[in-house]
């Protein structure tokens, strides 16, 4: 495993909910990243945001890691859930809340 892959692997597994995004949760720098932040904040989920703009290596590396061409990317318990569209569709269908609670992750709004 290359250094960047190893670093990403550590980051992915560093929390229950990890979001690779452009910008930070407090200041998203892309509308798609911002949408996922809004959904996670709405659900009151604790998550770790990783700003891929801080490193070109990370920005490309995360795409290779998940074989997914775009950012944001949401991981729950080390597993890739999806990008902005998938997260939004899951949220609208109530599946995201279900997925989180099945993984033992607390949300503040009732699913």
């Amino acid at each position: 495993m290359s250094d960047i892959k190893e670093l990403i692997d550590q980051e992915v597994k560093s929390g229950d909910v990890v979001l690779f995004m452009k910008g930070t949760p407090g200041f998203p720098q892309c509308g798609f990243s911002g949408q996922v932040v809004q959904i996670l904040d709405y659900l009151g989920v604790e998550y770790k945001g990783i700003n891929v703009l801080a490193s070109d290596e990370m920005r490309q590396g995360i795409k290779d890691y998940s074989n997914w061409p775009t950012i944001p990317q949401l991981y729950v318990k080390g597993e890739f859930v999806g990008g902005c569209d998938i997260v939004r569709e899951m949220f609208q269908a109530g599946e995201l809340q279900q997925h989180l609670s099945q993984n033992g992750i607390a949300t503040s709004s009732a699913a």
Binding site: T70, D85, M90
Partner: peptide, 18 residues
Amino acid sequence: SRLERHRAVNAALADELA
């Protein structure tokens, strides 16, 4: 699944996405 569908579309457009 949703993820599989998106992956299939992404794969078909891999050159364009790159």
